[in-house]
Amino acid sequence: MSGILEARGLGRMLPGEPPVTLVSGVDLTIQPGRFTTIVGPSGCGKSSLLYLLGLIDRPTSGELLFEGREVSGLTGDERARIRLARFGFVFQFHFLLPEFSALENVMLPIQRLGRLTHREAKARGLELLAGVGLEDKQGKTPDRLSGGERQRVAIARALANDPVLILGDEPTGNLDSHNSARVVETLRTLAHEQGRAIACVTHDPAIAAISDIRIEMLDGRVERVVESDPA
């Protein structure tokens, strides 16, 4: 099965004396409609791999294909454009802009993409906030929201431009079990019901257990890919 994102021999090395290998020789496929998790001990390179997959970092070896096209050689602006229009990101810490309200944070990528008018962008932002159950918190700045609420705003923002791929870097890492379960459920729905590809780095075994594909990493390499039967 062909994926949205395909890595072939992907590697990332930090130059220095001696050079540090973060990721090396990774082959993997991220598929639409599937919830993929990347797991492994601390320092195994799973976050580094996620930044490579999310076009935030550039590989030092191997190639990365997004929708069949080699993307690691694209210019910074072209890569930014793909991140903006096609990807969504959810980080461990909510990473919302503190000066902007929940609604404004969600609207940021929409406005930057500039396909919608301000009015349409606002309507879409409200719709997304409603989708994560926060329509009544739209005017609050991040410091007035709880940790779980912030992370849900971040998810709403990740969905702003209707991405084909959502990348999560320990999206539940900072949340209690109740909020954590809620976030995971949201992500799973996005994959199974809306057909988006989800790739999450996590060290929460509970999340890994419910994912469709589990990529286990060790020392910068993929050790094993475990695929659960599609339910």
Partner: peptide
Amino acid sequence: RKDIAILRSIGFSEAD
């Protein structure tokens, strides 16, 4: 710096 990283990762360009 943190906000810059957020904006860059969600697709704002260097020029932005």
